[in-house]
Design a protein around this nucleic acid. Sequence first.
DNA 1: GTTAGCACTCTATCTCTTTGAGTGCTAAAC
DNA 2: GTTTAGCACTCAAAGAGATAGAGTGCTAAC
Lengths: 347, 347
Amino acid sequence: MNERKLKILAAVVEEYVRTGEPVGSKAISSLPGIGVSAATVRNDMAMLEQLGYLEQPHTSAGRVPTINGYRLYIEELMRPPALPDAERERLDSMLEAQGPLTEELLIQNATTALAELTQCAAVVSDFSPKFSVISKVEVIPAGRRVYVVLLITSGGSIKNKACRLEFDLTNEQLGQFSEYLSRNLEGVSVADLSDERMANLTAAMSAYMMTMAPLVQGICEISRDLRQHALMFSGEKNLFSCEDLDKMEIVRFIEHKDELVKLLDDSFSGIRVVFGESNDSFVIGNSSMIVSKYRKGEQNVGSLGVIGPMRLDYAKVIPYLEYFSQKITDLISGESTEPPSEQQDDV
Amino acid sequence: MNERKLKILAAVVEEYVRTGEPVGSKAISSLPGIGVSAATVRNDMAMLEQLGYLEQPHTSAGRVPTINGYRLYIEELMRPPALPDAERERLDSMLEAQGPLTEELLIQNATTALAELTQCAAVVSDFSPKFSVISKVEVIPAGRRVYVVLLITSGGSIKNKACRLEFDLTNEQLGQFSEYLSRNLEGVSVADLSDERMANLTAAMSAYMMTMAPLVQGICEISRDLRQHALMFSGEKNLFSCEDLDKMEIVRFIEHKDELVKLLDDSFSGIRVVFGESNDSFVIGNSSMIVSKYRKGEQNVGSLGVIGPMRLDYAKVIPYLEYFSQKITDLISGESTEPPSEQQDDV
DNA sequence: GTTAGCACTCTATCTCTTTGAGTGCTAAAC
DNA sequence: GTTTAGCACTCAAAGAGATAGAGTGCTAAC
């Protein structure tokens, strides 16, 4: 496995990614930087095929990279150029929300931007809210026997939920109960707000507070929401413009998005590329997904991924993904100890 | 244009909808309820073609309904059976949320259910929040110089927004300002919360209240949100399973969803069917959209639509749509004077 | 080790033919 | 006057060769 063979493998991958057609020896040989004849290339290609890096759709066609070929290319051969400053600025500006930048908006913008830049689908699995801390609990009367509980976290999430009680509360009751909640919940990590803990909270309430149990229930549901991985997608439609992917498989994939979580939440560091073979249950055949983690401090709190055809310009996409996940890490790690800045919370 | 010709037209539409193939005279003649020979059917079909209700893809093929043919069928010929009670119950159960039933959840469930039932895309344009009334405004401190404004409407929407001030407020200031907002906003219709009115509100504030202008700004943004038509989709993916529709046009359509608003918000009563011809800018060629209004009291507050192939089982879909829009009308009109029941509001 | 030359393979494309569903028209039957 | 059977005609879709061309593997020369 000499230098030239690797160069040829890289050239085949790049040509195939560029054109979508099987690549012949002649095309490779005429590429700048190769400098050997088609016959030589042919010999090397035959070798690369034996080694499992290339394959032929049929005898008299050119070569196409195998999954192993792509893998070798991605891990060893490709040389993604460093992002020029202008490009970094462009990416940064895509991250900036048209409004105050919350963690959630940030990763949402990153997903949209990735989908846009790569013309692929982008996905993010975010479980950062789980790692923030309750900074405020509030109970607000909102009509006859209806009360809104409002939860604010250090990550900047603001969630509310309306609950119906059996009776109206006096101001005194409301005050006492609010105070009780604040004392017991503020400063507590969202990850620790288990159903069990909430049940204990209810159990510890005095008899006359029991009428307020639905409010605790409401908080319980909000915290369940916060602890859940939020899965966000963007650019699914781009997949349909992609010749290489089966439309029906895309539809099936979109229907079963949730199953992606398994792949996204595996822990690893750096970049991971998963290739979709048609026999996989829910992944799109002939597709690939590139995933990168982002962190909050030292803790992995989410995954950012790009899903596209296997025939993907990895050397272009991977730097984008790396840049975004690093940027998200920087931004949310930096902000994590601050109180929420501005924050929007829609129905 | 005698009885029999109409019967034949209806039969052609129904057969074509069922099979997707152009319908020949023989197939029609052998249908129960026709009872004339293929030759007779042929004569009638030739007539129907002349009148513009049928057309032939080519000389030696069967007939296919034209848009006018569909229109006549929908308006005069089809006889949708009344929904049996069992079916009504099934539909009702699809409307029930897995949680407390808010207006928003209700119409969301209706969209999902419609998409599911019809295997088409379903869309809803909802502007009911615009017609509700502010029932509560609250300002909640949420950290250093950060305050959350919370708006609750009679329709049950709960919206919040975090704002950053230049200074922290004293309890007294907060109280005064809250009181000022309540006095000026509670009971006011969302439709009346124009930017202008909000500007007046700011203008009327005493000098020392001016530091709180960002909070008014926050309310302004929330109200802008509420006044906007919410467009919700479900089942877009179903369109891709549809042979008759061009995949690229579907993608284009999904990208330009917003333009649908024009079609959905036209005022009309009852059911309207819009046929998509390929020369229309953004509608999918060969598609049709069936739209029905729902009301809150006497006021139209939203449209519910089904988008599918022109070759659609109208006799099945239209009753569903009618039932759902009536049901929504009943439910939101009935609830409209009550305070919000339970209500969830997520980030 | 590299390259030119050549026979070979296999798909994609084109043309030509066949098939069959469906038509319109005519003349007979009702 | 309306309906029907019969028949010639049309046209798309499917199949069968035939052809072209890109690309290969192998061999022999450099």
